[in-house]
Design a protein around this nucleic acid. Sequence first.
DNA 1: CCGTATCCATTCCGATACTG
DNA 2: CAGTATCGGAATGGATACGG
Lengths: 147, 147
Amino acid sequence: MLNETNAQCPVARALEVLGDRWALMILRDAFDGLRRFSEFQKNLGLAKNILASRLKLLVESGLLQLQPASDGSAYKEYVLTEKGRSVFPLVIALRQWGERFLFEAGEARSALLEQATGQAIAPLQVRTEDGRVLRPEDCQRRLVRHG
Amino acid sequence: MLNETNAQCPVARALEVLGDRWALMILRDAFDGLRRFSEFQKNLGLAKNILASRLKLLVESGLLQLQPASDGSAYKEYVLTEKGRSVFPLVIALRQWGERFLFEAGEARSALLEQATGQAIAPLQVRTEDGRVLRPEDCQRRLVRHG
DNA sequence: CCGTATCCATTCCGATACTG
DNA sequence: CAGTATCGGAATGGATACGG
């Protein structure tokens, strides 16, 4: 997918790992606390061979890590690494965008922002380091390229 | 891709639109100021028929909008709608994650956060509405489901 | 339970040629 | 310039069977 220009683009590189159809769904479930192969499979409803290959990719990419099962059983668990946990803002961005634009009025949107903490999440905003909110128009032609 | 469980998940819905191999790359370029068919094609290096179908999808999904060309030529331009501009934090999240984890030390990372504004972007953080930083561990089992 | 191996259907993508 | 039409190959996904 990457040509020479885009090989230097961090967005393009990130999409090489995360742009897959299942990667972010698996990570979403991992953030939800899922760890076991069968849990992912049940919740995602995808074929086992596909799940196996995606999990392997995520492990190889360093987003997930295989660990002994926490319940003492003989099996392994897939747990997020620091690199994987760092995808959190991305998943939240997806979630907020989906909530805002992809639900009809009738679909109980109000409940969607509630968390286990009982505390709503504030909308993600892009800010400069001095605290100003940065809008897309403000950084045209510099989002991608280096020079 | 969506089963019944995930059809109600805003992350899954968002990925139905944005999880495509090209959608976020096109939007990235749109944030960079690209508007014309040929500009996208040149920068992304994908086949014209593919680009045409993706642009059509993005227009149908309400992320892009066809407008008369700003330079007075006879052609049309693809410009971001409000819905499309709202993907901005997501692209920034991708970018920051890519910069942090997908570049080696030798690859001039320092320049990557510079913007046209000359001002660095602060790392995106997920916060509750009362201002506390929210980490993934804090909201297990409530990221996706409603009930 | 946790995968791997195999097979098949479908979808996606790139290249090319063509049109207004 | 901005697409559409067509085609072949590659990648993807699902189902099933099998093994540790």
